[in-house]
């Protein structure tokens, strides 16, 4: 699917919530996947508890956890949708005792100023 009349905008998806406590993370991912068909300039950031969405080793089945579908592997598939710009907020990650080696996907770590710059460059910011 082509962008609307060739228009390409910069879309930023801001993921701020832990993956299973609310549905925001899952439904954000659904927007990203559908949106990929529009060939826009897409970036994702993970901030606050949103960094947990990328955590390796999630166990959510009935036997091992809360009995909810584990969608964490979908983040690894984003590359196949040409969604390759994933950013993590440095402070959010460090405050939670995480490092990039705890995460499922390759990300770029941004400090506050870099995050502000990234947001300032966008046309559309969808915050989940």
């Amino acid at each position: 699917m082509d962008g609307e009349g060739g228009v390409i905008k910069k879309f930023l998806y801001v993921n701020r919530k832990a993956p299973y406590g609310t549905i925001y993370a899952l439904e954000s991912l659904e927007v990203v996947l559908i949106g990929a068909a529009f060939e826009q300039d897409v970036s994702l950031v993970f901030i606050d508890d949103g960094v947990y969405q990328l955590k390796k080793g999630q166990q959510t089945t009935v036997d091992s956890g809360i009995g909810v579908k584990d969608f964490s592997k979908t983040y690894r598939a984003l590359e196949g949708y040409d969604v390759e710009k994933l950013y993590v907020d440095k402070k959010s990650m460090e405050m939670r005792g995480l490092s990039t080696s705890d995460l499922n996907v390759d990300v770029e770590v941004l400090d506050d100023a870099q995050m502000a710059d990234l947001m300032a460059q966008q046309d559309i910011i969808l915050s989940f």
Binding site: G3, K9, E30, I34, G35, F38, Q40
Partner: peptide, 10 residues
């Protein structure tokens, strides 16, 4: 569908 949201943004 969700495409309507993306289109709305564009």
């Amino acid at each position: 569908g969700l495409g309507q949201l993306i289109e709305a943004g564009i």
